[in-house]
């Protein structure tokens, strides 16, 4: 009897916490498709707000994807070889480098954004292009890629596989392509999902780095929260959810698969 009471109490509490997290999302989704949120759902269901958001903010959404995939490209090209180098090299220098590239996870985005602005703000062309935002996203997401790949290296004994391929006559570059990258794939995929998800949702840095011509999806969101009617802001949030939730689900599935191994 006492056990059942404790169980019921904990379940109730957990449901309450879940409601706290889920109810606002449901509110937001319903507001995004309601004709008039103030009057409630009986005022009718509509896609007009979603269409309006698309007309207003398609550019922002497109730029966000451009930046997310450019960030992914850079973190792949720079981060995957670096993860291999850091793992194989080991030693103090590697630890220091790893520590430094992980710092952007500890330092608030606002500080990094200010630093970038104060250093490169004067280079007009660079400052006004989306590449400026890209640098911030790369700095912020790089540790996720590097660590995700390094985690795989630590678990598959990549060093011996590398030596095995070398003993068979493969040059360093051939080994990297034939053995290192294929075996790092789970980490590369997990890291990629993480990088794209974080880049699509990044606001702290981006708000500081953007210009009127380089607005991203979350910047547009903040705009709409400040200046648009609730239905439009909700519809915009709905579009964001539709983009980000599949990525989150994929990431979660990946994490579970990794745990089972």
């Amino acid at each position: 009897m006492r056990d059942r009471l404790i169980f019921a109490g904990q379940l109730g509490f957990t449901l309450l916490v879940a409601a706290f997290l889920v109810v606002p999302v449901v509110l937001s989704i319903s507001a995004g498709v309601t004709v008039n949120y103030f009057r409630g759902i009986q005022s009718g269901v509509t896609l007009q707000w979603v269409v309006q958001v698309w007309n207003l903010y398609a550019g922002e959404i497109g730029l966000s994807f451009l930046i997310a995939f450019a960030t992914l490209a850079v973190t792949l090209i720079v981060g995957v070889p670096a993860a291999y180098g850091l793992h194989v090299k080991g030693g103090r220098l590697s630890r220091v480098i790893e520590e430094i590239i992980t710092l952007p996870l500890a330092i608030p985005g606002l500080a990094i954004a200010l630093a970038l602005l104060l250093t490169y703000g004067g280079f007009g062309g660079f400052r006004q292009s989306w590449l400026f935002i890209l640098t911030g996203h790369v700095v912020f997401t790089m540790p996720f890629m590097v660590r995700s790949v390094m985690a795989v290296f630590a678990s598959v004994d990549i060093k011996t596989l590398d030596e095995g391929a070398a003993s068979l006559g493969a040059s360093p570059w051939t080994r990297f392509c034939n053995v290192i990258v294929p075996n790092a794939m789970p980490g590369i995929l997990a890291g990629s999902l993480m990088v794209v998800t974080l880049s699509l949702g990044e606001f702290n840095l981006t708000w500081m780095l953007h210009t009127p011509l380089t607005k991203t999806l979350p910047v547009g969101l903040a705009d709409s929260y400040a200046s648009m009617r609730l239905e439009v802001a909700s519809a915009y949030t709905l579009i964001f959810f539709i983009m980000i939730v599949p990525l989150l689900v994929a990431m979660q599935m990946f994490a579970e698969k990794g745990e089972k191994k």
Binding site: A82, Y84, P104, T119, W173, F176
Partner: peptide
């Protein structure tokens, strides 16, 4: 290429990117 050099080449882009877009800006800050 020796393996040692290859590892340095692997690390170089990361070192450059981190120095240019993180360490230098933080020093400036």
């Amino acid at each position: 290429m020796s393996h040692r050099n290859f590892i340095w080449i692997c690390l170089l882009p990361l070192v450059v990117v981190t120095a240019a877009f993180f360490l230098l800006p933080m020093a400036q800050l």
